[in-house]
Each structure stands twice: as C-alpha cells, then as structure tokens.
Computed example of a mutant assay.
Amino acid sequence: MAEGLGRRERKKQQTRRTLIETAARLFNERGYDATGVADVAEAADVTKRTFFLHFPTKEDVLLSDGPARVELALRVIDERAPQAPPREVLAEAIHAMIADTASRELPNGMAALRARLMVDSPAVQARVLRAVFTAQARIAEALRAAYPETLDRATAASVVGAAVGAVCAAAMASLQDGDAPEATSEAMRQAAAIALHAFDALGEESR
C-alpha cells in the first residue's frame, strides 16, 4: 500500500511539473493574456479539472514553487541551532530560499517570465505582490516567535521585509537586464547581505 501511495504521489508531482513547464512554454510562445487554462490543459494532455486540482488560477502557475520556498525558510527558523542569533538564522533562511530559486526557477526560465509579466500584466503584479507580502508576514511571525525577548512584531516585520524585499528587487533588476542565472543568484545574495545590516541597529545580542 505504501508503495502504491508513493507511485500516486510521484505521478501527481510529475503532472504538476508538466503543467508548470507547459504553461511557461505557452506563456512565452503565445503571450500570457492569450493563453488560457484550457490551452495549458490541452497542451499538457490533461483535463481542465486536473489543472484546477493543482492550481486555483492561471496566476498560481507562476508562483508554483513559492509556497514550498516559504516552508523551507520556516523550517530553517524552526530547526535553528540552540543559542543561534536571529540575524544568523534569518540569513540562513534567506539563503536557503535563494538557493531554491537558483535550482528551480532560474534554469527553467520561470523567474524571468514572472519578472517580465510583473511589468506587463497588472493581474500578475498584484498576485505576486500579495504572495511576497504573505511570505514576509509568515517568516516575520516565525522569527518573532523564535526570539520573543529580542524581537517585537514591528522589528521582525522590518528586518524580514528589508531582506525579502531587497532580494526580490535585486532579482527583478537582474532578470530584466537579461543576466545569466549565476549572475542573478549573486545579485540576490549581495542584496541579502546589504539588507541584513538592518540587524546592526538592534544591538549585539541580535547579531
């Protein structure tokens, strides 16, 4: 039974990946607005119902790896080493998210596509900004809960917002310049290093 469940899960994940890759290809070939859910489902050889089992909306395909990336950051915070300072933990969480982006969405072009659509499509822009805001809020709350004596809600929101915002902005600029994946990854890492200096104003205990 466990083996059967494993096969079903693998098939589910493969279908999801096929939908993502197919959508990315069609968005690039036909344009985002000109490509509907039915087009993606047909090209992926699945039903529209199958598409909606994986993604609530067309915009969600563009953010397909985002939720798992946030969970990765939350896990880093939750599994932090004893006595690890918050700056160090946040840095590890941010770098884990950058590494995940570099391994998934930079090579397949999804990050570049999303960056372009952020400029061209108001619907995509609104959806991405909402996702980023939600991610920042979840990470900030997890960090605050991990260090209640050091960080209050506003401070946690400030430092996480600075780091996530800087990384996203650097990625957007690099992708819009047409940089190679390695250069975009480096731009994100440099942005994180700059933003994490926000912790310096909190005192030695926070570093």
Rank of each mutant, 00 (worst) to 15 (best):
K12R: 15
A91L: 11
I94M: 14
E21M: 07
Q13L: 14
L113N: 00
E29G: 03
A163M: 02
Q125Y: 08
A84E: 15
A102G: 06
R104H: 10
E105I: 03
V159I: 14
A73D: 01
A126I: 03
R116D: 14
M97R: 03
Q83E: 15
A187W: 00
L117A: 11
A115C: 06
L63S: 10
L151H: 09
L113A: 05
Q13V: 08
G66D: 11
R144A: 04
A180Y: 07
A99D: 10
I98E: 03
R130T: 12
A198R: 05
T134E: 15
E9D: 12
L175C: 05
T47N: 07
P107D: 05
I194P: 00
A112M: 02
A34P: 02
P85L: 13
A191T: 00
E204F: 10
A99H: 05
D78C: 11
E186L: 10
Q13H: 09
D177H: 11
P148S: 13
V160M: 03
A156P: 01
A157C: 09
A195P: 00
Q176G: 13
A142H: 02
V46E: 06
A201G: 11
S103H: 05
V40R: 00
G36M: 04
L62R: 03
L113R: 04
D78T: 14
L5E: 14
T57Y: 03
A93P: 08
A142V: 09
D78Q: 14
L26R: 02
T47I: 10
V89G: 09
A157W: 01
P181S: 00
A126R: 11
P82E: 15
E71Y: 04
I194N: 08
A126D: 15
A162M: 09
A93G: 09
D179Y: 07
A84Q: 11
